[in-house]
Design a binder for these strands. Sequence first.
RNA 1: GGACAGAUGGGUGAGUUGGCUGAAACCACAUCCCUGCUAAGGAUGCGUACUCGUAAGGGUACCGAGGGUUCGAAUCCCUCUCUGUCCGCCA
Length: 412
Amino acid sequence: MLDIKLLQNDFESVCAKLRIKKVDENLLEQMRTLSLNLKEKRKELEELQAKQNAKSKLFGVYAKEGKDIKELQEELFGYKQQTNLANAGVKVLEGELEKIASIIPNIPDPDVPAGKDENDNVELKKVLTPPVFDFVPKEHWDLSLDWLDFERGVKLAKSRFTVLKNDGAKLARALINYMLDFNAKRGFREVSVPYLANRETLYGTGQLPKFENDLFKIDGEDLFLIPTAEVPVTNLFRDEILDINDLPLMMTCYSECFRKEAGSAGRDTRGMIRQHQFSKVELVSITTPQQSDAVFESMLTCASDLLTSLGLAHRHLLLCGGDLGFGAAKTIDLEVWFPGQNRYREISSISNTRDFQARRAMIRYRDGKKNRLVHTLNGSSLAVGRTLIAIMENYQKADGSVGIPEVLQPYM
RNA sequence: GGACAGAUGGGUGAGUUGGCUGAAACCACAUCCCUGCUAAGGAUGCGUACUCGUAAGGGUACCGAGGGUUCGAAUCCCUCUCUGUCCGCCA
């Protein structure tokens, strides 16, 4: 959620910043007008209520003293009608404002490059060099290892579901355990959370109300399958006021993630790149505004080092404004090298949402006497499925077998 | 799923013959005083949001959520949600 005061006081600069996120300026203008209007109406209502309250108190006193109440009662009745009317007006405005405010995306950081789409993202650096093969490397679905069973995944559920078998299943489990241990050493505490979340939770992190179509909803319940562990883990502290001394809170969480992938029909239909269900180890941090840049760096480093430790060549990509997600002020994607596809592909995404989610979810910390909004950050440690196939493709040998990265061997 | 019970501030927990209760008391917490240290003791402060004000300090709303009755509701009525206990079922 946008800071409404910022919109009221600094309209032009907010507009300018949201222009690269393709936000309709009329909507912002509407939001500003609405909020100013609401403020005024609210003031009127409160003044009415104050008068009404004062008179109402008199009523009790009069009654006790045996004074005549008739006239006062009529006066109060008049107030009542006025406040009811004013109150109804305020509620309407509140509803309208909420409706708009809830779908306006976050403001990009100043260092986010302008740009339209993924083609305008900026490569910050490359880590490790892609392996050189003396044969033509295969794509993971062509490696005949009997690790991935696409057909039976479809049989059990539908397309974009995959069954892991044998060392494939084992490797996925090894990766999860390895990542959690790796993150723990970097100071991230492990949590395990529900895979179903309610509306408030999904609102808090920004999936609702705008992206309901991307979520699997449980029939007959007001619950959704989580699209990422970011949702429950960040919301752990919804409606709470944290002790400043407990910050930053740094957590890591393994979960399954469920996405409808609406709008990506036809894309990555082969293989395990794009699934309706996938495993991911996530990093989530809750910080003070002062700490958030440093924590962002350490999350990024953590994810990048993890890839390095697995011997996987990757690059850091600073997302441009147009490619930035709804809640993110800044995002750096990690893309890993896929020899079979001969290109880098996203495997991790680290975002700072600043106070955007905090305002929605009302996550605050006490700073002396003041309660302030925290900053929330999230990032994939790594997507497990994509890491698995990255290992398959990068560690493949001429005979079709696949090596296991050294650090994972104790976990197999 | 069946039968009861309950939902009040960081916690415990008063308040349910409607006004003096945004909320007692205790605990926790913060600052200060006292004590050689510790323990104990004393004083003061201590919900959230919005809003007016340089500030001190005001105003409004909130006692699970939403609606209703009333001049006035934490207190009465309705709906919903959640929690607890017992029974059934179950990893």
